[in-house]
Design a binder for these strands. Sequence first.
DNA 1: TAGGTATTTTAGTTATTGCTTAAATAATGT
DNA 2: ACATTATTTAAGCAATAACTAAAATACCTA
Lengths: 124, 124
Amino acid sequence: MISSSCIRVFADTAYIEQCQQRLASVEPGLAALAAVLSLAGNRVRLQMLFLLAQEQQLCVCDLADVLQMNVSAISQHLRKLKDGGVIQARKVGQTVFYSLSAAQQPLIHSLLAAASTSHATSAR
Amino acid sequence: MISSSCIRVFADTAYIEQCQQRLASVEPGLAALAAVLSLAGNRVRLQMLFLLAQEQQLCVCDLADVLQMNVSAISQHLRKLKDGGVIQARKVGQTVFYSLSAAQQPLIHSLLAAASTSHATSAR
DNA sequence: TAGGTATTTTAGTTATTGCTTAAATAATGT
DNA sequence: ACATTATTTAAGCAATAACTAAAATACCTA
């Protein structure tokens, strides 16, 4: 037992274990989702995903121009997104075009939909 | 101009500016979304959100027991989620019950749905 | 082959994050 | 008032993240 348990009215051992069991059953999915969300949870990367969703594909230079950022910084963000399976690369000559990966495209689109629809309640 | 622009076939200034303009129009929404996603993009916090979605409400102790983590660490995660407007607190005696905030509940549920349905394609 | 362009990688710096420990608050019961 | 319980806060630390600058790679064209 890592930390001292509370002695409270609600919640008994059986209840705790039930929660743990339900959690365990979805844990792989949650871990994978957390990985994608942490990638999308960066302002610059979310902008990049928005642009890719809108334009289908963009090269590193395009993104750097639009976001007015260092090419190297953009490239490093793209690498993270690619490593996370969120985007894919297609090389044409010396230009690399990035696009949303087919696998994660639905998730990304549903996330971005939330940005427009949900009237983003300001924090605090 | 922050970085040297590329001299490439696709993409001209007009195109870049068009992208920038579209981006600017959704930027407030994207920034707000990024804030929520970065909160949900942490494995522990996503587990907490899953549990809150499942059980409606839980106190700090419950979460610490289920996740087998330090009460203080849990409390600090809860604070971030509350500051971000993702959850809300209700105090009953000396126990504080946390639950998903009404405003962000739809977004959180749609995120969690992705964890079960989307057959989370493993990265790399 | 040489030079230029697009991109990636490496190294270094600074800022942020998540956790631990310990102390501080707050509410409850004696 | 005092001890107990639930939670929060503060301080410190190790790990991670994001950016800059510089060097390395890859591809194209003359």
